[in-house]
Design a protein around this nucleic acid. Sequence first.
DNA 1: TCGCGTTTGTAGGAAGTTCCTACAAACGGG
DNA 2: CCCGTTTGTAGGAACTTCCTACAAACGCGA
Lengths: 213, 213
Amino acid sequence: MKPHRSIRLFVTVGQRLFRDSLLFQLLQQDEVDLVGESETGIDTLNRLLNADVNVLIIEENLRDNDGLTIAENALSLCPSMSVLLISDSPVSASRMSIYLEAGIKSVVSKTHPIQELIKTLLYIRNGQTYVSSWHTHSPKETELEAYTELSGREREVAKMMANRIPVKEIAEQLGVSCKTVHSYKDRIFIKLGFERLPELILFMKRHQNAGMA
Amino acid sequence: MKPHRSIRLFVTVGQRLFRDSLLFQLLQQDEVDLVGESETGIDTLNRLLNADVNVLIIEENLRDNDGLTIAENALSLCPSMSVLLISDSPVSASRMSIYLEAGIKSVVSKTHPIQELIKTLLYIRNGQTYVSSWHTHSPKETELEAYTELSGREREVAKMMANRIPVKEIAEQLGVSCKTVHSYKDRIFIKLGFERLPELILFMKRHQNAGMA
DNA sequence: TCGCGTTTGTAGGAAGTTCCTACAAACGGG
DNA sequence: CCCGTTTGTAGGAACTTCCTACAAACGCGA
């Protein structure tokens, strides 16, 4: 299977600060090709036509309109597009079915971690629907689970890396070669599904705190 | 002058999705050491004491309380801390003076680009106050300005990089060595003040669109 | 308890990126 | 016309990423 074709993405999020940080995050996925962004529903509708959009990520509550309405209109303009709605709070199953009927492919709530959004985006890009698990087990558990998968050495390295200790120094302190430390790093990232250091840092900080509580 | 000591940061932002993406952004600055995060004001107050916080970034409107009140209380607990308030909309000069009087070091609005937040964070870490320019010239202008500083070759490279064309291919197409392309990249990043590819991509996309309009 | 598949600790190579330095040719003012 | 700056070009050192390797330890089922 080929490394999927790129995602022609349009993002509609009201607040610049959050739109920016979301976009930076999304643009780290190298299959993401941003073809447009907007703050409002009307503007989004106006610009969707010229953009050959593949996936639309849109906030539920926009300044000028409600995202569901916009999404419905958008879908009648480009039926082949996948819509991912960002809701303010988790949606109930009944509400979800309304969304699905409207043709929306997935809903991610603002209470979800951002990885959820990215995972969902990658998932729905080919038109599948993705109903994220209503977390029968809390995300906390999943994370702890992941953590316990790390081996002793891996944990040591993870901790040190989360404290921004440079690879070289870690190698010295553990008495192994830099290459070895990199190997641990690779394995940690694979096991936890991370791609970049900030993810690891955040994970470890949260984990530490969770451990204390 | 030494590369400043680290910023012991506490972040209070209600929505997980945005908190996460903000944090990932902030954690890319390697002087940032996250010592805590929270969704609510009360919780923030409870935890500030044990954390030896250096800078507190806090949203203006929290679920349980108003950020200003929390910030004031927080400041009476740790007077040495710098507070950066994230406001929902740009604050007027008069409102700003209220904030400043309360001891808040800076206010960044959710309508601002995220670079503004980071710049401000780095600025206030030593206790200075930072009143961001009320944009006598629009950010658009500043950006265009920056763009015109790129030389011909730099622009070509910038465009190609923004389209995710790999360095090697750029080098071939321009008939120069990879090293040269890297040099352009370096210069582009310096001139525009960027640190990572997503910033460049977003900048170029926005610039293209601005150019078309 | 033996044997075999998996995980863990260890490390090397290739390719790519970042950061810094270099240098000649072109450019732009005074 | 001279000199400082910008532009086009590239090399080196150090580091990261990705992939492969391999022996020792581990765990589980016959």
